[in-house]
């Protein structure tokens, strides 16, 4: 389109504005609103995270000294107030430890299962599953432990750790050959507490032929 004179051009612009002005303004307002809304949302998120973090720090620092009831209560409050944050899951791990140490095995197992179900990162689920399986071994729940391991032994990073627990399960069931193989695998993959795993392996009774 070409215009012969400036007046015509002005006329065309005016016309265009009449047709589209409202939507332009609406669009701009909407856009600005979205930006400021997004910013407010981010600010809110940060504030929530900071508050959750403070609460979690408190939980961590009271965990070694306080009675388990206090820890569990603190963790429950944190969980209620900041349910959507990762801190809620992390506090689940802290609670499980406190509960187990206080002798409430069932509650500890439940806490770990919650962490596994809600874990925002698969690594947290693996770690929680590992702890769960170890408690199950300690309780002689061989089948439950084996099931936990089977369901969560996916990452090569934790394979050594799971192998060590699998060794414990096999040893508990009296399957010496499987236990030895599992311990060997755990050692080959640099599991934690390797010296203890080595002692366990060396202490296995002879395989009965």
């Amino acid at each position: 389109m070409s215009y012969e004179t400036d007046e015509e051009k002005v006329e065309a612009i005016k016309k265009w504005w009449k047709e589209n002005g409202l939507s332009v303004i609406a669009g701009t307002v909407l856009g600005l609103g979205a930006i400021s809304g997004w910013q407010a949302w981010m600010d809110y998120q940060q504030r929530v995270a900071s508050e959750a973090s403070s609460a979690f720090e408190q939980l961590l620092s009271s965990a070694p000294t306080e009675k388990f009831e206090v820890i569990v209560k603190q963790a429950a409050v944190l969980k209620d107030d900041f349910e959507s944050t990762t801190y809620a899951d992390l506090s689940g791990l802290v609670t499980a430890k406190a509960l187990y140490q206080a002798g409430d095995v069932a509650a500890a197992i439940a806490a770990l299962q919650t962490v596994i179900a809600d874990a925002p990162d698969p690594a947290f689920a693996s770690i929680a599953a590992l702890r769960l399986a170890r408690i199950q071994v300690a309780e002689n729940q061989w089948d439950a432990a084996a099931a936990t391991i089977a369901a969560h032994d996916h990452s090569p990073a934790f394979a050594g750790e799971f192998a060590a627990v699998r060794g414990d399960v096999a040893a508990g069931r009296g399957d010496v050959a499987a236990a030895r193989a599992a311990y060997e695998q755990a050692l080959a993959q640099h599991c934690g507490l390797a010296p203890l795993v080595r002692l366990k392996r060396d202490n296995l009774p002879p395989v009965r032929s």
Binding site: S53, F56, E57, L60, A63, P64, L90, L93, V94, A96, K97, Y100, Q101, I127, R131, R134, I135, V137, A138, L196, L199, K200, N203
Partner: peptide, 29 residues
């Protein structure tokens, strides 16, 4: 924040009663 994550994982680690018993049995065997 990095250390906080480390501490969350490290401080919540525990040793089961069975593990400790076995440790004692073996180390002082």
């Amino acid at each position: 924040t990095g250390t906080q994550l480390i501490r969350a994982i490290a401080d919540s680690e525990f040793v089961t009663r069975a593990e400790f018993s076995q440790y004692q049995r073996l180390i002082q065997q």
